[in-house]
Amino acid sequence: MQTHRAKRVEITIEAVMQSRLTDALTKAGVTGYTVLPVLGGSGRSGPWSRSGQVSRASGMVQVVCIIRPERVDDLLDAAFAVVERHIGIVSVSDCDVLRAERF
């Protein structure tokens, strides 16, 4: 099966920043992404869980984008402008996709 190289960008960010991030991505021409709920985890502020949060203030979401390698810098510039001062993780990894024309 023919596959094509692509970049997978995972941005784990506070739920309150989700719409700002996806708006910035859309403005940068990145129209394809997936938003996933984050159930819980542990970081510099200690462990936390999605259940029992009375406020969206402490919830997290993950935004996943798969794009062509040559577009990854534009995406990261747009994402970084939003997430720079916030809690979160941005990671980039290589992946393969089946239908290159979709990315």
């Binding site: 309150v16 700002r20 009375v54 406020s55 203030a57 402490s58 001062r85």
Partner: peptide
């Protein structure tokens, strides 16, 4: 509920553990 969410957006460097 409302204020912590607003503070995370407007004052991201303030300590959320403290005010929550």
């Amino acid at each position: 509920i409302a204020v912590p969410a607003a503070m995370r957006v407007a004052l991201p460097e303030a300590n959320p553990s403290l005010y929550l």
